[in-house]
Simulated scan of single mutants.
Amino acid sequence: MDVDLPCKLELVSDLPGHDERAWQVAWNPTKPLLASCSADKSVRMYSYRPSDHGSRDLSFSHVRTIPTGHTKTVRSIAWAPSGKTLATGSFDSNVGIWEREDASDSEDAGETTGDWECVTLLEGHETECKSVGYSSSGTLLASCSRDKTVWIWEVKPDADFECMGVLMEHSQDVKCVAWHPSEEILASASYDDTIKLYVDDPSEDWFCFSTLSGHKSTVWSLTWSPRESYLASSSDDLTIRIWKRVEEHKWRSVLELRGHERSIYSISWGVGKGASENLGWLATTGGDGKINVWEMNETQHIKDPLTAKLLASISGAHGVGDVNSVSWCPRPDHADLLATAGDDGSVKVWRVVPS
């Protein structure tokens, strides 16, 4: 661990339970729920609450395991903005859409009765689905696959979905899809070392308007900044790149970060804590088992508009195994919390605290 850093990562909760590697974690945007998915084909859900009245300490407890019925690894999960629907992307090539029977709007929805059921199964990908994601409006769902395609689905009432486009811009396996936090712009990352950006043209349907090149190996993960128009990407080339929107349809690389010795599998950009003028905190993790947290700040320089300061770092976060996913809690009162999923089958929750 880096002892001279201003902050450290404190373990809040260790949540074992998956029989095989845990691939991804996802915080429910509206309720105190955390979900994880695994090679064991299941989704596990955990609820959390203050340990004592008025306490900042949180207590996490397992409340549900969904067997899913997928015939292979569940690689990706994504909550709809409403928090009432969960999508699962599987190596069996299908996307499952899950809703809970007798869903309650109470804060403790994670602990009420009512099983989660698969209300729709989206078929179309020819092979492994690697990533799924809902747009900020909740009206669109994207999925991507080893078959080199990105699919965009329109979300309709009564769990009905309509395919709005099959995008075949990448020349290799597509690893990740990520929606802009406020606009209907979709980004995808691929084994072909590039990032593609897509928008909807009312007359021509969805199309790729930009290709971001610069990484020298597989691009594993993407995350948008909570404020302003920045996109972060992580790669097999051991770098994180930050891309800035300089015109409506033009982006350029403005910052490169290094801090990992092996592939960087997952990144997440949260609002962070502290000074309101900063651009939040970026968490990065991967094959070296390390978690890094960077504070991102804008400058007045046109050439170098962004700076990054390493706030906290921890090694061996999941023992000797890879860390496959990192995600910031979306709740403003817990903006210093992040969750990780690892090859050891566990989910861990961490808090950034002063050293």
Rank of each mutant, 00 (worst) to 15 (best):
V3L: 11
P6N: 06
E10L: 11
E10N: 12
V12C: 15
D14H: 15
D14G: 11
P16H: 08
P16V: 10
G17W: 13
H18N: 09
E20S: 02
A22K: 07
P29A: 00
K31S: 11
K31H: 12
D40R: 05
S42A: 09
R44V: 10
R49S: 14
P50E: 12
D52F: 14
H53G: 04
G54D: 12
L58C: 12
S59T: 15
F60A: 06
F60H: 05
S61C: 14
S61E: 15
T65N: 14
I66C: 11
T68E: 13
A78R: 09
S82T: 13
T88L: 12
S93L: 04
N94R: 15
W98L: 11
S104W: 05
E107V: 14
A109P: 09
W116F: 13
V119A: 15
L122M: 12
L122H: 14
E123I: 14
G124K: 00
T127H: 07
E128Y: 09
E128L: 14
C129I: 10
K130C: 15
Y134C: 07
S137Y: 03
C144Q: 09
R146H: 04
T149P: 06
V150S: 01
V150A: 01
W151R: 02
W153R: 07
P157F: 13
D158V: 13
D158N: 14
D160R: 14
G165W: 04
Q172I: 05
D173R: 03
V174H: 03
V174A: 07
A178M: 06
P181N: 01
E184M: 03
E184I: 00
L186P: 05
S190Y: 07
Y191Q: 11
T194S: 01
T194V: 00
I195P: 01
L197A: 03
S203W: 08
W206D: 09
W206I: 07
C208F: 08
C208G: 08
T211P: 04
L212T: 04
S213Q: 14
G214H: 12
G214L: 11
T218M: 08
L222G: 06
S225F: 07
P226S: 00
P226G: 08
Y230P: 05
S234M: 05
S235V: 06
L238K: 00
I240P: 09
I240T: 02
V246R: 08
E248I: 10
R252D: 14
V254R: 06
E256A: 15
E256I: 15
L257D: 05
L257W: 02
H260Y: 07
R262K: 14
R262I: 07
I264S: 03
W269V: 00
G270D: 01
G272E: 09
K273T: 14
E277Q: 13
L279Q: 07
W281S: 08
L282W: 04
A283G: 03
A283K: 04
T284N: 08
G286S: 03
G286H: 07
G289N: 08
V293H: 02
E295S: 10
E295P: 02
N297W: 03
K303T: 15
T307F: 09
A308S: 05
S313A: 11
S313L: 08
I314Q: 12
G316S: 05
V320C: 09
V320I: 06
S325K: 03
V326H: 01
V326S: 02
S327R: 02
W328Y: 09
C329S: 00
D333L: 12
A341L: 01
D343N: 01
D344K: 00
V347L: 09
W350Q: 00
V352I: 02
V352E: 04
S355E: 01
